[in-house]
Amino acid sequence: MIELESLAAFEQHLARGASLANVILQGLDLTGHTRALLGADLMGTAFLGCQLEKEALEAVLARGAMVFPPFSGLPYSPYRGSLYTPEELYAGFDPARPESYADTPDARIYAHWSAQGGVHTPSLLHTLAQRLHDHSITDAMEELLAHQGRPRKVVAIMGGHSMRRGQPDYRSVAELARELARLGFFLVSGGGPGAMEATHLGAWFARRSEAELGAALEVLARAPSYKDRDWLSRAFEVRAAWPLKDEDVPFCASMGIPTWHYGHEPPNPFATHIAKYFANSVREEGLLTIAKGGVIYSPGSAGTIQEVFQDACQNHYNTVGVVSPMIFLGQEFWTRTRPVYPLLEQLARGQEYARYLLLTDSREHILQALVDFDRELEARERAR
């Protein structure tokens, strides 16, 4: 089915003389387009959260269309047709006044979610709006990943939100992500601070020099933790000093997948696309599902360890159709500090994914493992 997610796309569709039958129109203000709707074939057409004049509404219902009405009084659109951008979520933020974050759409949505009870909201309408929103985000994410008719080579980097700027681990993740982006991989993460921010910082600097990345790391290190007052301001300082040019975007794009469930942690603004969810469970499972090129685990705590075993379950039962690499960055950490790897290695014995497990401190080993796996996937595709 055709999805029309902007007025421009709707008008172009009509200009071509194409039918509206079985077309999905998503989140459009169609006031002023009543005449066009009255003369259209609307059998099977779906209007998701569209603004319709009374005459148009009566006509589309009479002609067999489905109408999902818009919600009022929400700081977000349940039927949005695209992912978020940092510019949208942080609209109104002034780096000179860090407290201005409270006035941004991201903060207002989190405040609204919290005021409704968070995960324990008693309102059926609010939970319905949140589920519809998350469904729309998933749809937009799938469209992004089908890049120019070919699936992107998605690699995820997981790791703790408490990883501080200025630490060797943070630099290591940023440098690794930078090299992966240069090799054509599309980087995704949980979209928050710490190791997640380092992932998108690395992708942002994929077309810049080592010295420029180093200078940016020094700026960020002046506010090491997301709890620091200037954490977000320093990120915007880096964005302003080393902006992405139009020609950079195809090489430096990345996607963060955060959640308002952890809304006290602002999404990092280095991800060019942000798929922000209300439901953390949907966000976690979806993030691991799309990372068919492999998942890298940098040091983290309970959330990262949860992701390890969610990923292991997907690989163990091959629930997503691809058994992909699970790579652990930090031998000491994953065998002694958080001795997850020995248990996972035992769990994987006799399973296909056992050969895709890697424990290493070497960036080169990680890059080679992911490149080799990507070639293996391409060979399988050619053989079909």
Rank of each mutant, 00 (worst) to 15 (best):
A91S: 14
F93A: 09
A107R: 12
L74M: 09
P95C: 09
P78K: 07
T104V: 06
R80A: 05
P105Y: 06
A102F: 10
Y90N: 08
A91K: 13
G73H: 07
P69G: 08
A102K: 12
F68E: 14
T104W: 03
G92A: 04
F93N: 02
R108E: 04
T85H: 13
I109T: 04
I109Q: 05
A91V: 02
P69H: 08
Y76K: 13
Y90V: 00
E88Q: 14
A102G: 09
L74R: 09
A96R: 15
P105H: 06
E87S: 15
G73Y: 05
Y101K: 12
Y90H: 03
P98R: 07
P86T: 00
P105L: 01
Y76E: 02
R97Q: 13
T85E: 08
Y79I: 01
R108N: 08
L89H: 07
P75A: 10
F71L: 01
Y76P: 00
P95V: 09
E88Y: 14
D94A: 07
D94M: 05
Y76V: 09
D103V: 09
Y84K: 08
Y84D: 11
P86N: 00
S82N: 13
P70T: 11
D94G: 06
P86S: 06
P78I: 02
A91H: 15
S82G: 12
P105E: 01
P78N: 11
Y79P: 04
Y79T: 02
T85L: 11
P78Y: 11
T104F: 03
P78Q: 09
Y84T: 07
Y76D: 07
G81F: 00
Y101A: 11
F68L: 15
F93E: 04
R108V: 00
G81K: 04
S100T: 13
T85R: 15
R80P: 04
P86D: 01
Y110F: 14
P78A: 12
